[in-house]
């Protein structure tokens, strides 16, 4: 069993609660019986070596694994007391309320404006689209750089700007939780720093779960850290404890760089 420390929920229910979560890719048992409680308005980092199942676990939280035809998910993920995997739950609604930012910036081949407006348009939220676009771009700290060229192609932006555009696009559908799958791994240090500052800003309004390969990044930006190894949750608790005083030997070896 995993070592799990008390998670301070701040008097509220958890934003997400996974119980007995398992994912199979064909024969491969990629995530094994994971219990995880994500507190609201906090940043939770998922760390672990390549192939440990952290991205797969992240994708369980908004049912992105549904798109992988060979994947099968067992267990429950509760969101406001409702299991996301219960029959009758529409994954489309799940993904609108639990957004996702991907590893590589993946803007649509459209204008900056249309990229941000796509989500609201698809979800029928286009009341005042201009205002939504502006607000989302401001929140993603991109507005000042693009406000005078919203009709330009998103491909004309730099990698770091594209990733902030993808964050803005995610925020535009007003999710409660934002899942980030190594959002800065394809970016240079300056762009990475901007994304990290942004994550710090965003946690006031959103719950953030972030997968990262970069342990310094996890230590810098997260409140809680979960260490996964070979599909299992090994240790989960306050980031400071995980990095300075872990109880599990494997966690200590990993965070001190002895393997992984």
């Amino acid at each position: 069993m995993a070592t799990v420390y008390g998670i301070d929920l701040g008097g509220r229910g958890p934003a997400l609660q996974a119980r007995g979560l398992s994912v199979y890719y064909g024969e491969k048992h990629a995530v094994q019986n994971v219990d995880l409680e994500i507190p609201a308005n906090q940043v939770v980092a998922l760390i672990g070596p390549s192939g440990c199942g952290k991205s797969t676990l992240l994708r369980c939280f908004n049912r992105m694994n549904d798109l992988v035809k060979t994947a099968r998910v067992d267990g429950t993920v509760d969101f406001h007391g409702q299991n996301l995997y219960a029959s009758g739950i529409d994954p489309v609604e799940v993904r609108r309320r639990i957004g996702m930012v991907f590893q590589k910036p993946n803007p649509f081949p459209k204008s900056i404006y249309d990229n941000v407006a796509f989500g609201p348009r698809m979800n029928g939220l286009d009341g005042d689209l201009d205002a939504t676009v502006e607000e989302s771009l401001r929140r993603a700290a991109l507005w000042d750089e693009v406000s005078d060229r919203l009709d330009d192609s998103a491909y004309a932006l730099s990698g770091g700007q594209q990733q902030r555009l993808c964050i803005a696009r995610t925020l535009a559908v007003k999710p409660e939780i934002v899942l980030m799958d190594e959002p800065a791994s394809a970016l240079d240090p300056i762009a990475t720093q901007r994304i990290e500052e942004l994550i710090y800003e965003l946690k006031r309004d959103y719950t953030i779960v972030i997968v990262t390969h970069n342990m310094q990044q996890a230590a810098r930006i997260s409140d809680y850290t979960a260490f996964l190894y070979m599909g299992q949750l090994i240790e989960y608790g306050p980031t400071e404890t995980i990095f300075t005083n872990p109880r599990e030997k494997r966690t200590e070896d990993y965070v001190t760089g002895r393997f992984g």
Partner: peptide, 13 residues
Amino acid sequence: PTIREAAYGLGAT
């Protein structure tokens, strides 16, 4: 596939 993922991730059907 990243384009599809992005669109699905925004709650598109």
